[in-house]
């Protein structure tokens, strides 16, 4: 198996490297999500994931025929 971070919660780290590794892998486990929070600090106006994470997922999906 291999591991490439791809992004932090909201910034690219090495998406190109992740995409290249994805093209050689049998399967990809993409772990996306929000930053941790509770109560009022978690009041957010939008449920959309940060652009960097969405971009990582989209570029990896392009390497796989679904």
């Amino acid at each position: 198996m291999s591991y490439v971070p791809g992004t932090t919660y909201d910034k690219e780290v090495d998406i190109a490297k992740a995409v290249e590794a994805a093209s050689k892998a049998d399967a990809v486990v993409i772990c996306l999500g929000e930053w941790a929070y509770a109560e009022t600090p978690g009041n957010i106006p939008d449920l959309t994931l940060p652009d960097a994470q969405l971009f990582l997922a989209l570029k990896i999906m392009e390497t796989k025929s679904l």
């Binding site: 971070p5 993409i30 772990c31 941790a36 994470q53």
Partner: peptide, 21 residues
Amino acid sequence: TAHVLVTGPDADSLIPLNNGW
């Protein structure tokens, strides 16, 4: 035996597995 790529900001962190409270 599959070659698995693990990626993404939540892959290597305990924070999203536990979270608030």
